[in-house]
Design a protein around this nucleic acid. Structure first.
Length: 808
DNA sequence: CGAAGGCCAGAC
DNA sequence: TCTGGCCTTCGT
């Protein structure tokens, strides 16, 4: 029998199945979807078995060397999905499969030095064994780092003459966590006897035996808890183990990131008529195994999550499984608690806050069928469930569902692929659906499921628009308008909480010399550096470059350097000056980098340990604090003028989301939005909670400017350290595309992107707008192959992004 | 991707 | 003539 294997070599030439002979002894173990180690040229590699066939076109096949998985890690569906991904996202098959699995399952290749002929070595290079034996069984990469030039050249010669060898080992990065358990096989009587026989002075040992005498002595107990409970030391237990009274063994333990959180069980809530109306057709589809995409357009607080949970409940009762996608930043403990509270240990959670090992363990729960629900960020869409009953994508409009690196897939597209495969509904939920999805719902491609009322009948919070130009005219030069400031003070007095939102971290956006106008820029990117007050340093938000703040202008030596633009750090500073009694929690990438920091800050705020929560994007989603009655948006137009055709849409969505944070419970909420362009429809309509109005206007604008959803886009970005080369290649690509695509396709460019240089690489772009290009993928692939091939040695990078969400 | 083989330039 | 470095090729 022959196995078709996709090998772990990420290049075009090997992007196809390779045939391997399955030795008879492996026959019962090899099945599609497992990982195997195969010889490939002179080395050994990890590969995915995607198919098994009777025979091969080729002769002299090599054999599969070893088997990694005993259960498939990819189902037949996922194998097919990977194939589809590689076609639609123009990526390599191996990258597609790797993207579907936790990082811990990626191969790591290590080589170890072994001495094969010590005698000969000693004759050839007398004395060489002294250092060679030190290096034996050590990792080759380490030896290369530590050994001297001389030693390495001897080893290399010895390698050629086969006196030493490098043994290659392939494993994945998965490690399981082991804990030591202590148990006893003795009866209570025997234990008692042993207890009595112990020396009087062996007090600690007696404690331990007493524990087993008192407790249900048959159950094993983790060593660490035994030490605590029996008030004994490691050594006392060791003695007992040595005597054969107790048994110590290592048990593999699945890491459970939520082991220590006590979550209260919740029961389904009664639904409103409106919710019922949305749930019913979904449940019917679940029962009939029918695929249909629903767009659940529900205002904030309309009870979407409850609908999701009741639909999932139905799915579980049918013995099927559910995937719930939530944007990374919204994957707050609050959200997780809701699902854990309803479905208990039947839920796996996957998000970036988990360690590699934790993610791997959560994934294994899914793969073994120990859970039937997964709640997770984008990549959870690949959960290896076998009988999917529903897929839910919450906050459907979030751009984080699109992966911005290879494979550049959109979780929504994958969800629909899987929904079709399993014959199950896909529910897209949002208070502010993306124009693409809403337009599809209007056309009847998706089924619209609207929720216009909040469950508690609370009115949507009132939004007050502040024209910051007026404020400036009336002499207020601070970042807080008078109304916002007085409301903040008011909440402080009442003991209610406020949330302040500013979509910009750091202290100031740029530093400029007031004498000559020089702006300090990143030496590696064409972008200004952001000043971070706490460290007193200037940072590049694109490449991570840092430098200390110069005290004089690097250009004209002037001392008058000024900070322009406001970041969260500056707001924090201003708050402590203006409202010294207010306790402020700041949340942005800088304060939440550490593991668990996110949760900790939110918990502190929820517990009332602060009056004001100040933050970026990440506080806009999903937060639900009953005591928050004021939400302030400091600069509503900060996103509006970005060079992105979705700028208005993003502004509208963000404002609506932020506004939804206020007054979710019995206290009435208020929202203050400060802006320099308060007349812009994205801001006006968000203030009026008018999605329809915004949709109409934005659709008109998109139509005028020929953007999605009226046209599809594909963005090609070329990058290289050498500027003329980048322009030249982009020009050639543009010409190539013009020649190949239909004359209805619009090919724009070549143009320089908004940030023309990142990490010392110049960038140039070409954009395709089209409605219907049946051969697009084929032509793009040709383009990629043709130009990449011609420039591989040149470090030239061509990125093709179909349906891009990031235009920079 | 990474190993290996071919090829060329410079050292002796 | 040998060595090291660079480039190309190949992989079931």
């Amino acid at each position: 029998m022959i196995a078709k294997v996709i090998v772990d070599v990420p290049v075009k030439q090997t992007d196809k199945p390779f045939d391997y002979f399955i030795p008879d002894s492996f026959l019962p173990l090899v099945q599609p979807g497992i990982r195997v180690v195969v010889p490939f040229g002179p080395r050994k590699l990890l590969g995915f078995v995607i198919d098994i066939e009777e025979e091969s076109q080729l002769t002299n096949l090599k054999e599969i060397e070893s088997i990694i998985d005993h259960e498939p890690v990819l189902t037949d569906e996922l194998i097919e999905l990977g194939d589809w991904l590689s076609k639609t996202a123009l990526c390599l098959k191996i990258s597609a499969y790797q993207a579907m699995l936790p990082a811990a399952m990626k191969a790591s290749y290590k080589k170890y030095l072994i001495i094969t002929d010590g005698k000969e070595l000693n004759e050839r290079w007398p004395g060489c064994l002294t250092f060679l034996t030190d290096y034996e069984n050590k990792e080759w990469a380490q030896i290369l780092k530590t050994a001297s030039q001389e030693e390495i050249s001897i080893i290399q010669k010895a390698l050629r003459e086969n006196m030493v060898a490098l043994e290659q080992v392939v494993h994945d990065k998965s490690t399981s966590k082991k804990i030591k358990m202590i148990r006893t096989e003795l009866t209570k009587d025997d234990l008692q006897k042993a207890y009595d026989q112990l020396d009087k002075r062996a007090k600690k040992q007696k404690n331990v035996l007493a524990y087993f005498l008192n407790e249900d002595h048959g159950t094993p107990i983790p060593l660490t808890s035994l030490i605590k409970k029996a008030d004994a030391g490691r050594s006392a237990i060791n003695h007992l183990v040595d005597k054969g009274l107790l048994i110590e063994e290592e048990v593999e333990q699945l890491r459970d990131p939520y082991a220590h959180s006590e979550i209260e069980k919740t029961t389904p809530l009664p639904l409103t008529n409106e919710q019922q109306g949305v749930l019913e057709p979904i449940v019917q589809d679940i029962e009939e195994d029918k695929h249909q995409v629903y767009l659940c357009h529900g205002v904030t607080g309309s009870g979407k999550t409850e609908i999701y949970m009741q639909a999932i409940d139905k799915v579980i009762k049918q013995g099927k499984e559910a995937i719930v996608l939530v944007p990374e930043i919204a994957l707050t403990p609050q959200m997780v608690h809701r699902f854990k509270g309803r479905f208990g240990s039947d839920v796996a959670v996957l998000h970036s806050g988990l360690s590699r090992g934790e993610k791997y363990d959560e994934w294994r729960k899914i793969n073994r069928g120990e859970v039937s629900v997964v709640v997770g960020a984008r990549s959870a869409i690949f959960a290896s469930f076998k009988k999917l009953g529903i897929i839910i994508i919450d906050e459907e409009h979030e751009t984080s569902y699109k992966q911005e690196e290879n494979p550049r897939y959109h979780a929504r597209d994958v969800a629909i692929f899987r929904g079709r495969f399993h014959g199950c509904p896909v529910v897209l939920g949002s208070a502010t659906p993306s124009l693409e999805s809403y337009a599809r719902a209007q056309k009847g491609v998706y089924k619209l499921a609207p929720l216009y009322n909040r469950i508690n009948q609370q009115p949507l919070p009132e939004v007050m628009m502040i024209d910051m130009r007026e404020e400036l005219r009336s002499g207020n030069r601070s970042m807080f308008s008078k109304p916002l400031f007085s409301k903040l003070t008011d909440r402080l007095e009442k003991g209610e909480q406020s949330v302040l939102f500013l979509n910009r971290r750091g202290y100031s956006t740029f530093v400029m010399c007031r004498d000559c106008g020089y702006v300090i820029e990143c030496p590696h990117c064409d972008i200004s550096l952001t000043y971070h007050r706490r460290q007193g340093r200037l940072k590049c938000h694109y490449c991570g470059y840092e430098e200390s703040l110069p005290d004089r202008c690097p250009s004209c030596e002037s001392e008058y350097m000024r900070y322009f633009g406001t970041g969260t750090q500056k707001v924090e500073e201003a708050l402590t000056q203006l409202l010294p009694e207010a306790r402020v929690i700041r949340m942005d990438v800088d304060t939440t980098k550490k593991k668990g920091a996110h949760e900790k800050l939110l918990k502190a705020f929820g517990d009332g340990k602060a009056d004001i929560l100040l933050g970026t994007q990440m506080i806009a989603k999903g937060l639900d604090f009953p005591n928050v009655t004021l939400v302030g948006v400091l600069a509503a137009d900060s996103m509006l003028h970005l060079p992105d055709f979705r700028a208005s849409e993003k502004t509208f969505q963000l404002l609506t989301q932020v506004a939804g944070r206020a007054g979710r419970h019995h206290l009435k909420g208020e929202v203050v939005v400060q802006s320099y362009t308060p007349d812009h429809y994205a801001i006006v309509d968000a203030g009026a909670h008018d999605y329809q109005g915004f949709y109409q206007k934005e659709m008109y604008a998109r139509h005028q400017r020929q953007y999605p959803p009226y046209f599809f886009l594909t963005l090609i970005t070329v990058s290289h350290p050498d500027f003329p080369k980048v322009v030249d290649v982009t020009q050639k690509i543009t010409r190539f595309l013009k020649q190949k695509l239909t004359n209805k396709a619009m090919i724009l460019g070549p143009v320089a992107p908004p940030i023309p240089r990142i990490k010392d690489r110049y960038r140039y772009q070409c954009m395709i707008k089209y409605k219907n290009e049946p051969d697009l993928i084929k032509i793009l692939k040709e383009c990629q192959n043709h130009f990449q091939e011609a420039y591989t040695k040149d470090a030239l990078k061509i990125t093709i992004d179909i349906n891009p969400y990031l235009l920079m």
